[in-house]
């Protein structure tokens, strides 16, 4: 009995690893293929059967990429700047609104917060062409304003995130501040925000990452190539050199690099952010 139990346990363990390796291959395989492709010569990418590893490793693809598309650096810069501004704006505006919803006793509060929750359910792409009209009227087409300003005016998702966290901060601390003569904003800036560092980090990483990943917005609103973000720039690149597989792979690699680095250093916060909204939503 003991032997067969052990054997079945070993078998199930082996099966687990086989499945795990299969899942690992699914998730990392395409990324590895990208790495392999970008280090090949152009000719080697037209070979069948394809070679798993480059015959000779070369960085020519990067040279071609940056000669063909000298704007690459600028796109990276644009993406970083936009994403940082989005993250900053998201934290400031959403935490303010969330504080309002978490700490005030107001007749309108519940109704308004319900609207916040409803807008979480609004499909973004239904709004994207109508919003385009708004931006044309504002003269914001081909500027970064449509990408950044909305972030400074609160996002339902982040308001929800902050509110959930603020609710866990004991109100006794507020009362102590009021007794010392502080007002609402003192409580927000001196008590609540300093205690909310984890959620601030999570929200800013999230906002940064989602702004970095955004394609549809920049694709519709940005028209001249020096205003592009990396995502739209990459799409432009596909249209320009659809046959240069190594250069395309190199471009993809560059677009992943910054986020990949953030992920490996800030994995914990990303995980927390998703879990917080997912499990309580």
């Amino acid at each position: 009995m003991n032997v067969s139990y052990k054997r079945s346990k070993a078998a199930s363990k082996a099966l687990s690893y086989i499945l795990l390796i299969g899942v690992l291959a699914l998730f990392t395989g395409p990324l590895l293929w990208m790495l392999s492709t970008m280090l090949k010569t152009k000719a080697e990418t037209y070979k069948y059967p394809p070679s798993l590893f480059p015959e000779t490793v070369t960085f020519e693809a990067f040279e071609r990429l940056f000669t063909l598309q000298p704007l690459m650096w600028q796109w990276i810069g644009n993406s970083v700047l936009i994403s940082v501004l989005v993250a900053l704006g998201t934290v400031v505006s959403s935490s303010l609104a969330a504080y309002g919803f978490a700490r005030f006793d107001n007749r309108a509060k519940n109704g308004l917060f319900f609207i916040v929750l409803i807008t979480l359910m609004i499909p973004a792409s239904v709004m994207i062409v109508p919003s385009f009209v708004l931006y044309t009227k504002l003269g914001w087409i081909d500027t970064w304003l449509p990408l950044i300003v909305p972030a400074w005016l609160g996002g339902a998702y982040y308001i929800f995130l902050f509110r959930q966290f603020f609710m866990t901060i004991p109100r006794e601390l507020d009362e102590a501040t009021y007794l010392d003569g502080g007002g609402r904003f003192t409580v927000y800036s001196r008590i609540v925000m300093p205690l909310s560092k984890p959620i601030i980090i999570t929200a800013s990483i999230f906002a940064f990452v989602y702004s970095w990943l955004d394609f549809l917005g920049p694709f519709l609103y940005l028209k001249s190539s020096e205003n592009y973000t990396l995502s739209v720039g990459l799409q432009f690149l596909i249209g320009q050199t659809s046959q240069d597989f190594p250069a395309l792979a190199a471009g993809a690699f560059i677009s992943i690099l910054p986020i990949g680095v953030i992920y490996f250093f800030a994995q914990r916060y990303i995980v927390e952010g998703v879990v917080l909204t997912g499990s309580k939503g």
């Binding site: 936009i82 081909d142 500027t143 970064w144 400074w152």
Partner: peptide, 13 residues
């Protein structure tokens, strides 16, 4: 805050 954000945006365009 709004002025600040508008100025920041202005940089982009």
């Amino acid at each position: 805050m709004f002025v600040f954000s508008m100025v920041m945006m202005g940089c982009g365009s």
